[in-house]
Design a protein around this nucleic acid. Structure first.
Length: 639
DNA sequence: ATTAGGG
DNA sequence: CCCTAAT
Protein backbone atom coordinates (compact mmCIF):
# COMPACT_ATOMS: atom_id res chain seq x y z
CA UNK A 1 0.00 0.00 0.00
CA UNK A 2 2.79 2.44 0.34
CA UNK A 3 0.14 4.81 1.21
CA UNK A 4 2.04 7.85 1.87
CA UNK A 5 3.30 10.13 -0.62
CA UNK A 6 6.61 9.26 -1.98
CA UNK A 7 7.06 6.35 0.26
CA UNK A 8 8.45 4.63 -2.69
CA UNK A 9 10.88 7.21 -3.50
CA UNK A 10 13.22 4.63 -4.79
CA UNK A 11 11.08 4.51 -7.78
CA UNK A 12 11.72 8.03 -8.52
CA UNK A 13 14.75 7.52 -10.51
CA UNK A 14 17.39 9.74 -9.26
CA UNK A 15 18.72 11.57 -12.15
CA UNK A 16 22.25 12.70 -11.71
CA UNK A 17 22.43 16.38 -11.59
CA UNK A 18 24.43 17.06 -14.62
CA UNK A 19 27.05 19.63 -14.32
CA UNK A 20 25.87 21.50 -17.30
CA UNK A 21 22.62 22.15 -15.68
CA UNK A 22 20.10 24.31 -17.25
CA UNK A 23 21.37 25.35 -20.58
CA UNK A 24 21.69 22.03 -22.27
CA UNK A 25 18.47 20.70 -23.60
CA UNK A 26 15.89 22.25 -21.40
CA UNK A 27 12.96 21.15 -23.36
CA UNK A 28 13.87 17.53 -23.60
CA UNK A 29 12.90 15.81 -20.47
CA UNK A 30 14.83 12.80 -19.51
CA UNK A 31 12.96 9.67 -19.87
CA UNK A 32 13.03 7.15 -17.20
CA UNK A 33 12.11 3.60 -17.43
CA UNK A 34 9.52 3.56 -14.76
CA UNK A 35 7.74 6.75 -14.32
CA UNK A 36 5.57 6.72 -11.32
CA UNK A 37 2.09 7.87 -11.51
CA UNK A 38 0.66 9.47 -8.50
CA UNK A 39 -2.61 10.81 -7.65
CA UNK A 40 -2.77 13.93 -5.68
CA UNK A 41 -5.15 13.46 -2.93
CA UNK A 42 -6.23 15.26 0.10
CA UNK A 43 -7.09 13.64 3.32
CA UNK A 44 -10.29 14.85 4.71
CA UNK A 45 -10.94 15.23 8.34
CA UNK A 46 -12.68 11.94 8.47
CA UNK A 47 -9.86 10.23 6.74
CA UNK A 48 -11.36 10.04 3.34
CA UNK A 49 -9.26 10.65 0.35
CA UNK A 50 -10.39 13.01 -2.22
CA UNK A 51 -8.74 14.10 -5.38
CA UNK A 52 -6.78 17.23 -5.12
CA UNK A 53 -8.21 20.29 -6.64
CA UNK A 54 -6.79 21.74 -9.75
CA UNK A 55 -5.38 24.52 -7.74
CA UNK A 56 -3.59 22.11 -5.59
CA UNK A 57 -2.25 20.35 -8.58
CA UNK A 58 -0.99 23.64 -9.76
CA UNK A 59 0.72 24.12 -6.50
CA UNK A 60 2.51 20.91 -6.90
CA UNK A 61 3.47 21.76 -10.39
CA UNK A 62 4.99 24.90 -9.16
CA UNK A 63 6.91 23.03 -6.59
CA UNK A 64 8.73 20.93 -9.01
CA UNK A 65 11.77 22.05 -10.76
CA UNK A 66 11.38 21.51 -14.42
CA UNK A 67 14.97 20.79 -14.97
CA UNK A 68 15.23 18.15 -12.39
CA UNK A 69 11.94 16.57 -12.63
CA UNK A 70 9.16 16.40 -15.04
CA UNK A 71 5.73 16.52 -13.72
CA UNK A 72 2.82 16.28 -15.96
CA UNK A 73 -0.62 16.24 -14.70
CA UNK A 74 -4.11 16.11 -15.82
CA UNK A 75 -6.77 16.77 -13.39
CA UNK A 76 -5.83 15.15 -10.18
CA UNK A 77 -3.31 12.73 -11.41
CA UNK A 78 0.28 13.55 -11.80
CA UNK A 79 3.17 11.79 -13.24
CA UNK A 80 6.53 12.47 -11.91
CA UNK A 81 9.64 11.59 -13.68
CA UNK A 82 13.07 12.12 -12.45
CA UNK A 83 13.79 13.18 -8.98
CA UNK A 84 12.54 16.05 -7.07
CA UNK A 85 15.24 18.55 -7.25
CA UNK A 86 17.35 18.41 -4.21
CA UNK A 87 18.12 22.05 -4.19
CA UNK A 88 14.55 22.80 -4.71
CA UNK A 89 13.51 21.01 -1.66
CA UNK A 90 16.34 21.23 0.72
CA UNK A 91 17.83 24.51 -0.14
CA UNK A 92 20.43 24.64 2.49
CA UNK A 93 18.69 22.73 5.14
CA UNK A 94 20.60 19.59 5.66
CA UNK A 95 18.92 18.08 8.61
CA UNK A 96 16.93 15.57 6.80
CA UNK A 97 19.69 14.82 4.51
CA UNK A 98 22.07 14.00 7.26
CA UNK A 99 19.64 12.08 9.28
CA UNK A 100 18.80 9.84 6.46
CA UNK A 101 22.29 9.55 5.33
CA UNK A 102 22.04 6.05 4.00
CA UNK A 103 24.56 5.66 1.25
CA UNK A 104 22.19 4.43 -1.29
CA UNK A 105 19.01 5.67 0.15
CA UNK A 106 20.44 9.03 -0.47
CA UNK A 107 18.59 11.91 -1.86
CA UNK A 108 15.56 10.16 -3.00
CA UNK A 109 14.35 9.66 0.44
CA UNK A 110 15.39 12.97 1.60
CA UNK A 111 13.69 14.57 -1.25
CA UNK A 112 10.60 12.64 -0.84
CA UNK A 113 10.41 13.63 2.74
CA UNK A 114 10.68 17.22 2.00
CA UNK A 115 8.45 16.91 -0.89
CA UNK A 116 6.00 15.37 1.43
CA UNK A 117 6.22 18.19 3.81
CA UNK A 118 5.59 20.56 1.03
CA UNK A 119 2.70 18.64 -0.20
CA UNK A 120 1.20 18.70 3.17
CA UNK A 121 1.71 22.35 3.20
CA UNK A 122 -0.59 22.74 0.32
CA UNK A 123 -2.79 20.16 1.76
CA UNK A 124 -2.36 17.27 -0.52
CA UNK A 125 -0.44 14.11 -0.68
CA UNK A 126 0.75 11.98 -3.42
CA UNK A 127 -0.65 8.60 -3.62
CA UNK A 128 1.02 6.26 -5.89
CA UNK A 129 -1.40 4.80 -8.26
CA UNK A 130 -1.04 2.20 -10.85
CA UNK A 131 -2.23 3.13 -14.15
CA UNK A 132 -4.71 0.39 -14.42
CA UNK A 133 -5.93 1.12 -11.03
CA UNK A 134 -6.38 4.67 -11.73
CA UNK A 135 -8.07 3.98 -14.92
CA UNK A 136 -10.43 1.73 -13.21
CA UNK A 137 -11.11 4.31 -10.66
CA UNK A 138 -11.71 6.94 -13.13
CA UNK A 139 -14.03 4.78 -15.01
CA UNK A 140 -15.90 4.15 -11.91
CA UNK A 141 -15.84 0.49 -12.49
CA UNK A 142 -15.62 -0.21 -8.88
CA UNK A 143 -18.93 1.30 -8.46
CA UNK A 144 -20.27 -1.80 -10.04
CA UNK A 145 -17.71 -4.26 -9.02
CA UNK A 146 -17.97 -3.45 -5.44
CA UNK A 147 -15.46 -4.76 -3.01
CA UNK A 148 -13.56 -6.14 -5.81
CA UNK A 149 -12.21 -2.76 -6.13
CA UNK A 150 -8.63 -2.09 -5.70
CA UNK A 151 -7.44 -1.17 -2.34
CA UNK A 152 -5.50 1.83 -2.67
CA UNK A 153 -3.68 2.16 0.44
CA UNK A 154 -5.25 4.82 2.29
CA UNK A 155 -2.75 7.16 3.51
CA UNK A 156 -3.97 7.36 6.95
CA UNK A 157 -1.02 9.49 7.19
CA UNK A 158 1.11 6.68 8.18
CA UNK A 159 4.63 7.82 8.60
CA UNK A 160 6.83 7.60 5.61
CA UNK A 161 8.68 4.37 5.45
CA UNK A 162 11.96 6.06 5.68
CA UNK A 163 11.32 7.92 8.80
CA UNK A 164 10.41 4.95 10.75
CA UNK A 165 12.24 5.30 13.98
CA UNK A 166 13.10 8.87 14.50
CA UNK A 167 10.12 10.90 13.77
CA UNK A 168 7.38 8.67 14.81
CA UNK A 169 5.89 11.07 17.21
CA UNK A 170 6.64 14.05 15.18
CA UNK A 171 5.05 12.57 12.24
CA UNK A 172 1.92 11.79 14.03
CA UNK A 173 1.76 15.27 15.27
CA UNK A 174 2.20 16.56 11.85
CA UNK A 175 -0.45 14.35 10.58
CA UNK A 176 -2.82 15.52 13.11
CA UNK A 177 -2.32 19.01 12.09
CA UNK A 178 -2.69 18.05 8.59
CA UNK A 179 -5.97 16.48 9.32
CA UNK A 180 -7.14 19.56 11.01
CA UNK A 181 -6.25 21.53 8.07
CA UNK A 182 -7.98 19.14 5.83
CA UNK A 183 -10.98 19.45 7.98
CA UNK A 184 -10.90 23.13 7.56
CA UNK A 185 -10.75 22.83 3.89
CA UNK A 186 -13.56 20.41 4.01
CA UNK A 187 -15.77 22.61 6.00
CA UNK A 188 -15.47 25.12 3.32
CA UNK A 189 -17.67 22.89 1.35
CA UNK A 190 -14.97 22.39 -1.07
CA UNK A 191 -14.52 18.86 -2.03
CA UNK A 192 -17.07 17.45 -4.19
CA UNK A 193 -17.51 15.37 -7.17
CA UNK A 194 -19.32 15.78 -10.29
CA UNK A 195 -21.15 13.22 -12.14
CA UNK A 196 -21.34 14.96 -15.39
CA UNK A 197 -19.23 13.51 -18.04
CA UNK A 198 -17.25 14.95 -20.79
CA UNK A 199 -19.22 16.09 -23.71
CA UNK A 200 -17.03 16.12 -26.68
CA UNK A 201 -19.79 17.02 -28.95
CA UNK A 202 -19.44 20.46 -27.63
CA UNK A 203 -15.86 20.74 -28.35
CA UNK A 204 -15.48 19.72 -31.87
CA UNK A 205 -14.55 21.65 -34.85
CA UNK A 206 -12.49 24.70 -34.53
CA UNK A 207 -11.83 26.10 -31.19
CA UNK A 208 -9.86 29.16 -30.43
CA UNK A 209 -9.04 28.84 -26.85
CA UNK A 210 -7.12 32.01 -27.08
CA UNK A 211 -10.23 33.98 -27.55
CA UNK A 212 -12.21 32.47 -24.82
CA UNK A 213 -12.99 34.18 -21.65
CA UNK A 214 -12.39 32.42 -18.44
CA UNK A 215 -16.00 31.63 -18.20
CA UNK A 216 -15.94 30.08 -21.60
CA UNK A 217 -12.81 28.24 -20.80
CA UNK A 218 -14.51 26.81 -17.82
CA UNK A 219 -17.30 25.62 -19.97
CA UNK A 220 -14.92 24.08 -22.36
CA UNK A 221 -13.09 22.52 -19.53
CA UNK A 222 -16.26 21.02 -18.31
CA UNK A 223 -17.10 19.73 -21.71
CA UNK A 224 -13.70 18.27 -21.99
CA UNK A 225 -13.19 16.77 -18.62
CA UNK A 226 -16.69 16.37 -17.47
CA UNK A 227 -16.21 18.32 -14.38
CA UNK A 228 -15.87 21.79 -13.14
CA UNK A 229 -12.73 23.50 -12.25
CA UNK A 230 -12.14 26.54 -10.25
CA UNK A 231 -8.85 27.36 -11.69
CA UNK A 232 -8.84 30.79 -13.10
CA UNK A 233 -5.55 30.67 -14.75
CA UNK A 234 -6.32 31.07 -18.38
CA UNK A 235 -3.10 29.65 -19.54
CA UNK A 236 -3.51 26.64 -17.36
CA UNK A 237 -7.02 26.08 -18.56
CA UNK A 238 -6.10 26.47 -22.14
CA UNK A 239 -3.25 24.11 -21.88
CA UNK A 240 -5.23 21.52 -20.06
CA UNK A 241 -7.98 21.66 -22.56
CA UNK A 242 -5.61 21.67 -25.44
CA UNK A 243 -3.82 18.69 -24.04
CA UNK A 244 -6.99 16.81 -23.66
CA UNK A 245 -8.32 17.68 -27.03
CA UNK A 246 -5.17 16.90 -28.83
CA UNK A 247 -4.36 14.01 -26.65
CA UNK A 248 -0.96 15.34 -26.22
CA UNK A 249 0.99 17.02 -23.58
CA UNK A 250 3.02 18.71 -26.13
CA UNK A 251 1.16 21.88 -25.99
CA UNK A 252 2.86 25.18 -26.40
CA UNK A 253 2.02 28.06 -24.24
CA UNK A 254 1.32 30.44 -26.97
CA UNK A 255 -1.23 29.35 -29.42
CA UNK A 256 -4.34 27.44 -28.60
CA UNK A 257 -6.30 27.10 -31.69
CA UNK A 258 -7.57 23.65 -32.15
CA UNK A 259 -9.10 22.31 -35.28
CA UNK A 260 -10.48 18.89 -35.37
CA UNK A 261 -8.63 17.92 -32.32
CA UNK A 262 -5.40 19.05 -33.69
CA UNK A 263 -3.56 21.88 -32.28
CA UNK A 264 -2.88 24.39 -34.92
CA UNK A 265 0.37 26.04 -34.40
CA UNK A 266 1.33 29.38 -35.59
CA UNK A 267 3.85 27.89 -37.87
CA UNK A 268 1.06 25.89 -39.29
CA UNK A 269 2.94 22.79 -38.53
CA UNK A 270 0.71 19.86 -38.76
CA UNK A 271 3.00 17.90 -36.62
CA UNK A 272 2.87 14.30 -35.83
CA UNK A 273 -0.39 14.21 -34.09
CA UNK A 274 -2.61 13.84 -37.02
CA UNK A 275 -6.27 14.22 -36.88
CA UNK A 276 -6.78 10.57 -37.02
CA UNK A 277 -4.75 9.89 -34.06
CA UNK A 278 -6.46 12.54 -32.13
CA UNK A 279 -9.86 11.40 -33.03
CA UNK A 280 -8.97 7.99 -32.04
CA UNK A 281 -7.90 9.26 -28.75
CA UNK A 282 -11.14 10.97 -28.28
CA UNK A 283 -12.92 7.85 -29.08
CA UNK A 284 -11.05 6.05 -26.46
CA UNK A 285 -11.96 8.68 -24.02
CA UNK A 286 -15.52 8.48 -24.88
CA UNK A 287 -15.39 4.82 -24.56
CA UNK A 288 -13.97 5.08 -21.18
CA UNK A 289 -16.43 7.57 -20.09
CA UNK A 290 -19.29 5.64 -21.39
CA UNK A 291 -18.24 2.44 -19.82
CA UNK A 292 -19.48 3.91 -16.70
CA UNK A 293 -21.59 6.86 -16.40
CA UNK A 294 -19.45 8.21 -13.79
CA UNK A 295 -17.09 10.99 -14.06
CA UNK A 296 -13.44 10.43 -14.39
CA UNK A 297 -13.26 11.35 -10.85
CA UNK A 298 -13.45 9.09 -7.98
CA UNK A 299 -16.63 9.40 -6.14
CA UNK A 300 -16.69 10.01 -2.51
CA UNK A 301 -18.21 6.71 -1.89
CA UNK A 302 -15.59 4.89 -3.72
CA UNK A 303 -12.99 6.87 -2.15
CA UNK A 304 -14.32 6.16 1.20
CA UNK A 305 -14.42 2.54 0.52
CA UNK A 306 -10.86 2.61 -0.45
CA UNK A 307 -9.97 4.25 2.69
CA UNK A 308 -11.75 1.87 4.88
CA UNK A 309 -10.58 -1.16 3.10
CA UNK A 310 -7.14 -1.08 4.43
CA UNK A 311 -5.16 -3.90 3.01
CA UNK A 312 -2.96 -3.82 0.09
CA UNK A 313 -4.21 -4.20 -3.31
CA UNK A 314 -3.65 -7.74 -4.25
CA UNK A 315 -5.31 -8.71 -7.38
CA UNK A 316 -4.13 -7.31 -10.54
CA UNK A 317 -6.46 -4.92 -12.12
CA UNK A 318 -8.12 -6.24 -15.14
CA UNK A 319 -7.18 -5.44 -18.60
CA UNK A 320 -8.22 -2.03 -19.25
CA UNK A 321 -5.10 -1.63 -21.06
CA UNK A 322 -4.91 0.98 -23.59
CA UNK A 323 -3.66 0.15 -26.94
CA UNK A 324 -1.47 3.10 -27.21
CA UNK A 325 0.28 2.34 -24.06
CA UNK A 326 3.88 3.03 -24.48
CA UNK A 327 6.58 1.04 -22.82
CA UNK A 328 8.02 4.09 -21.28
CA UNK A 329 5.00 5.72 -20.00
CA UNK A 330 2.35 4.52 -17.75
CA UNK A 331 -0.20 6.99 -18.55
CA UNK A 332 -3.72 6.88 -19.52
CA UNK A 333 -5.47 8.75 -22.20
CA UNK A 334 -6.50 11.44 -19.94
CA UNK A 335 -3.17 11.77 -18.45
CA UNK A 336 -1.92 12.21 -21.91
CA UNK A 337 1.34 10.86 -22.86
CA UNK A 338 4.15 13.27 -23.24
CA UNK A 339 5.53 15.33 -20.56
CA UNK A 340 4.99 18.95 -20.58
CA UNK A 341 6.85 21.78 -19.30
CA UNK A 342 4.49 23.62 -17.22
CA UNK A 343 3.88 27.15 -18.20
CA UNK A 344 6.21 29.43 -16.48
CA UNK A 345 3.90 32.19 -15.63
CA UNK A 346 0.57 32.17 -14.09
CA UNK A 347 -1.69 34.96 -14.86
CA UNK A 348 -4.05 34.53 -12.08
CA UNK A 349 -4.90 38.08 -11.73
CA UNK A 350 -7.33 38.65 -14.47
CA UNK A 351 -9.36 35.87 -13.14
CA UNK A 352 -10.08 37.46 -9.88
CA UNK A 353 -11.19 40.39 -11.86
CA UNK A 354 -13.50 38.32 -13.92
CA UNK A 355 -14.78 36.55 -10.94
CA UNK A 356 -15.65 39.63 -9.16
CA UNK A 357 -17.47 40.83 -12.11
CA UNK A 358 -19.42 37.71 -12.43
CA UNK A 359 -20.29 37.69 -8.85
CA UNK A 360 -21.74 41.07 -9.27
CA UNK A 361 -24.04 39.63 -11.77
CA UNK A 362 -22.64 41.53 -14.63
CA UNK A 363 -20.43 39.33 -16.60
CA UNK A 364 -20.47 41.61 -19.49
CA UNK A 365 -17.59 40.64 -21.62
CA UNK A 366 -18.06 37.02 -21.05
CA UNK A 367 -19.14 36.43 -24.57
CA UNK A 368 -17.46 39.25 -26.26
CA UNK A 369 -15.38 36.95 -28.35
CA UNK A 370 -18.09 36.79 -30.85
CA UNK A 371 -18.82 34.05 -33.28
CA UNK A 372 -15.33 33.32 -34.34
CA UNK A 373 -15.07 30.45 -32.09
CA UNK A 374 -18.24 28.73 -32.60
CA UNK A 375 -19.30 26.20 -30.10
CA UNK A 376 -19.25 26.34 -26.41
CA UNK A 377 -21.28 29.35 -25.94
CA UNK A 378 -24.55 27.77 -26.72
CA UNK A 379 -23.99 25.16 -24.15
CA UNK A 380 -24.35 27.18 -21.13
CA UNK A 381 -26.77 24.95 -19.51
CA UNK A 382 -26.11 24.52 -15.90
CA UNK A 383 -25.21 21.05 -15.13
CA UNK A 384 -26.52 18.99 -12.41
CA UNK A 385 -24.55 17.52 -9.70
CA UNK A 386 -26.51 14.43 -9.49
CA UNK A 387 -25.02 11.07 -9.29
CA UNK A 388 -25.99 8.08 -11.23
CA UNK A 389 -27.96 6.70 -8.45
CA UNK A 390 -29.77 9.88 -8.14
CA UNK A 391 -27.88 10.90 -5.13
CA UNK A 392 -26.67 14.35 -5.09
CA UNK A 393 -23.01 14.64 -5.26
CA UNK A 394 -21.06 17.47 -4.17
CA UNK A 395 -19.38 19.54 -6.71
CA UNK A 396 -15.71 19.32 -6.75
CA UNK A 397 -14.37 22.60 -5.93
CA UNK A 398 -11.35 23.88 -4.32
CA UNK A 399 -11.47 25.76 -1.16
CA UNK A 400 -9.03 28.36 -2.10
CA UNK A 401 -10.23 30.74 -4.67
CA UNK A 402 -13.86 30.28 -4.04
CA UNK A 403 -16.18 32.07 -1.83
CA UNK A 404 -15.90 29.39 0.69
CA UNK A 405 -13.81 29.42 3.75
CA UNK A 406 -10.42 30.73 3.13
CA UNK A 407 -7.58 28.47 3.81
CA UNK A 408 -4.99 30.49 5.55
CA UNK A 409 -1.92 29.10 4.00
CA UNK A 410 -1.39 28.79 0.34
CA UNK A 411 -1.89 32.17 -0.94
CA UNK A 412 -1.92 31.80 -4.62
CA UNK A 413 -3.86 34.87 -5.03
CA UNK A 414 -1.05 36.57 -6.64
CA UNK A 415 2.42 35.72 -7.58
CA UNK A 416 2.17 32.30 -9.00
CA UNK A 417 5.30 30.81 -7.67
CA UNK A 418 5.60 32.40 -4.35
CA UNK A 419 4.98 29.26 -2.51
CA UNK A 420 8.26 27.89 -3.52
CA UNK A 421 10.30 30.34 -1.62
CA UNK A 422 8.00 30.07 1.25
CA UNK A 423 8.43 26.44 1.40
CA UNK A 424 12.10 26.68 1.43
CA UNK A 425 12.31 29.22 4.10
CA UNK A 426 9.85 27.35 6.16
CA UNK A 427 11.59 24.15 5.74
CA UNK A 428 14.75 25.74 6.77
CA UNK A 429 13.18 27.12 9.82
CA UNK A 430 11.72 23.88 10.94
CA UNK A 431 13.64 21.25 9.18
CA UNK A 432 13.21 18.65 11.81
CA UNK A 433 9.73 19.17 13.01
CA UNK A 434 6.32 18.96 11.65
CA UNK A 435 6.69 21.51 9.04
CA UNK A 436 3.20 21.47 7.87
CA UNK A 437 1.85 21.96 11.30
CA UNK A 438 4.15 24.82 11.87
CA UNK A 439 3.15 26.38 8.68
CA UNK A 440 -0.43 26.22 9.44
CA UNK A 441 0.01 27.60 12.84
CA UNK A 442 2.14 30.38 11.61
CA UNK A 443 -0.18 31.24 8.88
CA UNK A 444 -3.01 31.51 11.25
CA UNK A 445 -1.01 33.61 13.56
CA UNK A 446 -0.23 35.93 10.80
CA UNK A 447 -3.81 36.40 10.00
CA UNK A 448 -4.66 37.17 13.54
CA UNK A 449 -1.86 39.52 14.20
CA UNK A 450 -2.62 41.13 10.97
CA UNK A 451 -6.11 41.92 11.97
CA UNK A 452 -5.20 43.00 15.40
CA UNK A 453 -2.67 45.38 14.17
CA UNK A 454 -5.13 46.82 11.82
CA UNK A 455 -7.53 47.49 14.58
CA UNK A 456 -4.91 49.00 16.72
CA UNK A 457 -3.97 51.33 14.03
CA UNK A 458 -7.47 52.48 13.55
CA UNK A 459 -7.93 53.02 17.19
CA UNK A 460 -4.89 55.12 17.32
CA UNK A 461 -6.00 57.16 14.44
CA UNK A 462 -9.15 58.08 16.18
CA UNK A 463 -7.29 59.10 19.20
CA UNK A 464 -4.59 61.27 17.88
CA UNK A 465 -4.54 64.57 16.13
CA UNK A 466 -3.96 64.14 12.48
CA UNK A 467 -0.44 65.38 12.26
CA UNK A 468 0.81 63.23 15.00
CA UNK A 469 -1.14 60.18 14.44
CA UNK A 470 -0.03 60.35 10.95
CA UNK A 471 3.38 59.61 12.09
CA UNK A 472 2.14 56.69 13.95
CA UNK A 473 0.35 55.50 10.98
CA UNK A 474 3.54 55.68 9.16
CA UNK A 475 5.38 53.70 11.68
CA UNK A 476 2.51 51.37 11.52
CA UNK A 477 1.52 48.75 13.93
CA UNK A 478 4.90 47.31 14.25
CA UNK A 479 5.75 49.98 16.68
CA UNK A 480 2.50 49.68 18.40
CA UNK A 481 3.36 46.21 19.21
CA UNK A 482 6.51 47.44 20.72
CA UNK A 483 4.46 49.48 23.05
CA UNK A 484 5.03 52.80 21.50
CA UNK A 485 3.78 55.53 23.70
CA UNK A 486 1.58 58.04 22.06
CA UNK A 487 3.09 60.78 24.09
CA UNK A 488 6.34 60.81 22.29
CA UNK A 489 4.95 60.90 18.88
CA UNK A 490 7.74 62.69 17.26
CA UNK A 491 10.42 60.75 18.92
CA UNK A 492 8.40 57.75 18.17
CA UNK A 493 8.59 58.42 14.53
CA UNK A 494 12.28 58.78 14.63
CA UNK A 495 12.57 55.64 16.56
CA UNK A 496 10.41 53.88 14.16
CA UNK A 497 12.25 55.13 11.26
CA UNK A 498 15.42 54.01 12.79
CA UNK A 499 14.31 50.56 13.50
CA UNK A 500 12.81 50.37 10.13
CA UNK A 501 15.99 51.29 8.53
CA UNK A 502 17.77 48.50 10.24
CA UNK A 503 15.20 45.84 10.02
CA UNK A 504 14.54 45.56 6.45
CA UNK A 505 11.47 43.65 7.28
CA UNK A 506 9.11 45.42 9.51
CA UNK A 507 5.49 44.76 9.68
CA UNK A 508 5.72 43.88 6.12
CA UNK A 509 7.26 40.60 6.87
CA UNK A 510 5.28 40.17 9.98
CA UNK A 511 6.46 37.95 12.78
CA UNK A 512 5.78 34.73 11.12
CA UNK A 513 5.59 36.01 7.64
CA UNK A 514 7.79 33.17 6.65
CA UNK A 515 4.65 31.26 6.30
CA UNK A 516 3.49 33.17 3.37
CA UNK A 517 5.90 35.87 2.49
CA UNK A 518 2.84 37.95 2.18
CA UNK A 519 2.89 40.69 -0.25
CA UNK A 520 4.04 43.95 1.08
CA UNK A 521 1.51 44.97 3.57
CA UNK A 522 -0.45 47.80 2.19
CA UNK A 523 1.08 50.88 3.48
CA UNK A 524 -1.32 53.70 3.32
CA UNK A 525 0.33 56.80 2.12
CA UNK A 526 0.28 59.42 4.76
CA UNK A 527 -0.29 62.96 3.89
CA UNK A 528 3.22 63.78 4.87
CA UNK A 529 4.54 61.19 2.56
CA UNK A 530 2.51 62.53 -0.28
CA UNK A 531 3.76 65.94 0.47
CA UNK A 532 7.29 64.77 0.50
CA UNK A 533 6.76 63.08 -2.73
CA UNK A 534 5.36 66.15 -4.33
CA UNK A 535 8.14 68.24 -3.03
CA UNK A 536 10.61 65.78 -4.21
CA UNK A 537 9.17 65.78 -7.66
CA UNK A 538 9.16 69.51 -7.78
CA UNK A 539 12.75 69.54 -6.76
CA UNK A 540 14.20 66.72 -8.70
CA UNK A 541 11.55 66.19 -11.26
CA UNK A 542 9.31 63.29 -11.95
CA UNK A 543 11.35 60.34 -12.84
CA UNK A 544 14.14 60.89 -10.43
CA UNK A 545 12.62 58.55 -8.03
CA UNK A 546 15.76 57.06 -6.95
CA UNK A 547 16.87 60.48 -5.92
CA UNK A 548 13.69 61.42 -4.25
CA UNK A 549 13.69 58.18 -2.47
CA UNK A 550 17.12 58.82 -1.15
CA UNK A 551 16.57 62.29 0.10
CA UNK A 552 12.97 62.44 1.12
CA UNK A 553 12.23 58.87 1.90
CA UNK A 554 15.46 57.65 3.32
CA UNK A 555 13.87 56.54 6.57
CA UNK A 556 10.91 54.96 4.92
CA UNK A 557 12.48 51.77 3.87
CA UNK A 558 9.17 50.42 2.84
CA UNK A 559 8.79 52.99 0.14
CA UNK A 560 10.76 51.99 -2.82
CA UNK A 561 11.47 54.19 -5.73
CA UNK A 562 8.95 52.18 -7.60
CA UNK A 563 6.41 52.90 -4.96
CA UNK A 564 7.09 56.55 -5.33
CA UNK A 565 6.70 56.28 -9.02
CA UNK A 566 3.43 54.47 -8.67
CA UNK A 567 2.20 56.91 -6.17
CA UNK A 568 3.05 59.76 -8.37
CA UNK A 569 1.20 58.19 -11.19
CA UNK A 570 -1.77 57.84 -8.97
CA UNK A 571 -1.48 61.38 -7.87
CA UNK A 572 -1.50 62.45 -11.44
CA UNK A 573 -4.61 60.51 -12.07
CA UNK A 574 -6.19 61.99 -9.05
CA UNK A 575 -5.23 65.44 -10.03
CA UNK A 576 -6.65 65.13 -13.48
CA UNK A 577 -9.70 63.44 -12.25
CA UNK A 578 -10.14 66.29 -9.96
CA UNK A 579 -10.01 68.70 -12.79
CA UNK A 580 -12.29 66.82 -15.05
CA UNK A 581 -14.83 66.01 -12.45
CA UNK A 582 -15.43 69.36 -11.01
CA UNK A 583 -13.90 69.06 -7.66
CA UNK A 584 -17.15 69.63 -5.88
CA UNK A 585 -17.90 66.02 -5.30
CA UNK A 586 -15.50 65.33 -2.54
CA UNK A 587 -18.41 64.11 -0.59
CA UNK A 588 -20.06 62.12 -3.25
CA UNK A 589 -17.78 59.25 -2.74
CA UNK A 590 -18.19 57.55 0.50
CA UNK A 591 -14.57 57.26 1.06
CA UNK A 592 -13.65 55.99 4.41
CA UNK A 593 -10.66 58.18 4.37
CA UNK A 594 -10.04 61.69 3.40
CA UNK A 595 -9.16 62.35 -0.18
CA UNK A 596 -5.97 63.97 -1.11
CA UNK A 597 -6.26 67.65 -0.39
CA UNK A 598 -7.15 69.53 -3.49
CA UNK A 599 -4.26 71.95 -3.11
CA UNK A 600 -1.85 69.14 -3.31
CA UNK A 601 -3.51 67.71 -6.32
CA UNK A 602 -3.38 71.03 -7.98
CA UNK A 603 0.23 71.23 -7.22
CA UNK A 604 0.66 67.84 -8.70
CA UNK A 605 -0.99 68.91 -11.85
CA UNK A 606 1.18 71.93 -12.01
CA UNK A 607 4.24 69.88 -11.75
CA UNK A 608 2.88 67.43 -14.20
CA UNK A 609 2.26 70.07 -16.78
CA UNK A 610 5.53 71.73 -16.22
CA UNK A 611 7.21 68.43 -16.58
CA UNK A 612 5.27 67.48 -19.63
CA UNK A 613 6.58 70.51 -21.38
CA UNK A 614 10.08 69.49 -20.67
CA UNK A 615 9.72 65.89 -21.48
CA UNK A 616 7.65 64.15 -24.06
CA UNK A 617 4.55 63.23 -22.23
CA UNK A 618 2.82 60.03 -23.16
CA UNK A 619 -0.85 60.41 -22.95
CA UNK A 620 -2.84 61.75 -20.15
CA UNK A 621 -5.86 60.04 -21.45
CA UNK A 622 -4.45 56.75 -20.40
CA UNK A 623 -3.78 58.09 -17.05
CA UNK A 624 -7.14 59.43 -16.32
CA UNK A 625 -9.64 57.33 -18.11
CA UNK A 626 -8.56 53.76 -17.53
CA UNK A 627 -9.31 53.31 -13.95
CA UNK A 628 -10.46 55.28 -11.07
CA UNK A 629 -9.46 52.34 -9.06
CA UNK A 630 -5.94 53.40 -8.68
CA UNK A 631 -7.06 56.70 -7.52
CA UNK A 632 -9.13 54.94 -5.04
CA UNK A 633 -6.25 53.08 -3.67
CA UNK A 634 -4.54 56.29 -3.36
CA UNK A 635 -6.87 58.28 -1.35
CA UNK A 636 -7.64 55.40 0.83
CA UNK A 637 -4.55 55.99 2.77
CA UNK A 638 -4.04 58.56 5.38
CA UNK A 639 -6.78 60.03 7.20
C1' DA B 1 20.02 49.04 -10.38
C1' DT B 2 16.56 52.23 -12.31
C1' DT B 3 12.65 53.49 -14.98
C1' DA B 4 8.50 53.26 -17.48
C1' DG B 5 4.23 50.98 -18.05
C1' DG B 6 0.74 47.65 -17.84
C1' DG B 7 -1.87 44.75 -14.90
C1' DC C 1 1.28 46.68 -5.15
C1' DC C 2 3.26 43.35 -8.60
C1' DC C 3 5.64 42.19 -12.78
C1' DT C 4 8.30 43.09 -17.01
C1' DA C 5 10.67 45.12 -20.28
C1' DA C 6 13.97 48.31 -21.48
C1' DT C 7 17.70 50.91 -20.23
Amino acid sequence: MEPLALAEAEQLVERPLDANNGSAAPSSPKHIANPVVYQLVRVEGDGRLVPATDDEVMEVEDMVDDDKCQISSVADTVQIEGSISNEELSHGSSDLKDSEGGPQSGNSKVNSQKFNARLEYIGVMLEKVKKEERLRLSVGERRHKGENSSQKAVPQLSPPANDSSTNQSETSGKCLKFSDRAAIAKSSSSVTFISSKPDFSKIKGEICLDNLSIKELHETFRATFGRETTVKDKLWLKRRIAMALTNSCDVPTTSFTIINNTLVKNVSEEEECGMQQSEEAIKVDEKINSSCEDSPIISLDDQHRDVSSSGKREREPEEHELKNESPHTEITEQTAAKRVRKPTRRYIEELSETDTRELNGRSVLAVKTGGHCQSLRSHDQPFQNIGLDGTTVVTREDSFGGSGVQVPFVSRVRGGRRPRKNFVSLLNCHPSGSVAAELITKALEVCVSQQESENVEIAVKDTLPSEQHEQLVNSETEEMVNSCSRQQLQSAELKNLGSRGNDSDDVTMEPSAKGAERRKHHRAWSLSEVTKLVEGVSRYGAGKWSEIKRVAFAPYSYRTSVDLKDKWRNLLRASFALTLADKGDKNLRKQAVAPIPTPILLRVRELAEKHSQTTPHPSISKLVSPSARTVEDDRSGYL
